[in-house]
């Protein structure tokens, strides 16, 4: 058992060596660089990075699964806004307990995910189109519900998931660990996980194999929706309010993390471990650029180039390995 664990770790490093080196190089640079030397490697900053990127990890676990499934989910960003506003709305407008608001937010996420899953599995409309539509619909619902104004909610319980601590550890970081474990279990330790790789790799063969293709799709999109709902709760909680514009573009960060993590956009292959590194790379990059005081407009340009470079290096490496 111990040796298998050890070989698993070795395999993990072997599979992801390129991006792990990139991540470490970025960290070393930030530790040495004069401007960031004193600020980067502090406990506060590390927890800060993790907390800020916890929502991206929630989304990226779901995004990994839908991309392995051969699909995509563009609606997660809008779901962040909707679920956050619903959570805040339940507390502020309806006077319900915070926990009910959070539950409602998760349900809203699940509902959007189910809608995506149902339409994608029952029709032949490509996931890109279906989720592009649901992204817009969801965005519209938030704006109708909030009339474009944020819903402020300052109660301690509401602040807890995004801004609270257990001991020295931010709650969002704990949620991050829990979500990662759940996703890893689904992908590696369940039949659903295997079926997901099968459907993404060859849907026709999966049908012949007696796999419920539409059920697999439905479940995975629903999971992704719930994760977007959770991301919405944490985002709203961190900002003490449901913001109708929050989560804008969040789907793109999630997709970037998954792709940097080595998951192929053509489906059928990919690992969650890679996605985790992808999330951290995006996180450290954002943080580093902020600490260095780089203008936020320039940050987009740098981020775009890093994504391209990371994927290109991976591409070259795979081609050399003859894959």
């Amino acid at each position: 058992m111990v040796s298998r664990f050890k070989s698993g770790i070795i395999k993990y490093f072997k599979d992801n060596i390129g991006i792990i080196i990139a991540l470490i190089a970025m960290c070393i640079f930030l530790v040495i660089f004069p401007v960031t030397r004193n600020t980067f490697m502090t406990q506060k900053n590390i927890f800060n990075i993790l907390r800020q990127n916890s929502t991206n990890l929630f989304l990226a676990t779901g995004m990994s699964m839908v991309i392995i499934l051969g699909g995509i989910d563009l609606s997660v960003g809008s779901v962040i806004a909707l679920s956050g506003c619903i959570a805040a709305g339940c507390v502020v407008k309806l006077g319900l307990p915070e926990i009910v608001g959070f539950a409602a937010a998760l349900l809203v996420g699940a509902a959007v995910g189910m809608f995506n899953g149902l339409v994608i599995s029952k029709t032949d409309i490509p996931p890109f189109i279906v989720t592009l539509a649901s992204m817009n619909i969801t965005k519209g619902i938030v704006l109708v519900y909030t009339e474009g104004a944020p819903i402020r909610c300052m109660t301690d319980a509401f602040k807890f998931p995004g801004a609270g601590y257990i001991g020295p550890v931010p709650m969002a970081v704990i949620l991050m660990v829990i979500v990662y474990i759940i996703a890893a279990l689904i992908m590696n330790k369940t039949q659903l996980g295997r079926h997901m790789y099968a459907v993404g790799g060859n849907p026709q063969a999966a049908r012949f194999s007696g796999i419920h293709v539409s059920k697999v799709k439905f479940l995975i999109y629903t999971y992704t929706g719930i994760m977007a709902g959770l991301a919405g709760i944490v985002t709203a909680s961190r900002m003490y309010s449901g913001q109708p514009t929050s989560g804008n573009g969040a789907e793109m960060d999630a997709i970037a993390s998954v792709v940097i993590g080595g998951t192929s956009m053509s489906g059928g292959s990919g690992r969650l471990g890679g996605t985790l590194i992808g999330v951290l790379i995006i996180g450290v990059l954002n943080n580093g650029l902020n600490l260095m005081g780089v203008n936020s407009n320039w940050q987009y340009i740098v981020k775009g180039l890093v994504i391209l470079l990371a994927v290109y290096v991976d591409f070259i490496r795979n081609r050399k390995a003859g894959r």
């Binding site: 295997r194 790789y197 099968a198 790799g201 060859n202 194999s209």
Partner: peptide
Amino acid sequence: EEGLYKVQSVRFNSTIQVLGQFI
């Protein structure tokens, strides 16, 4: 077209229909 999961291993391809026996 109807059988192979070509990016996956021999093991994955061998066991995809009997996952219930070991998961």
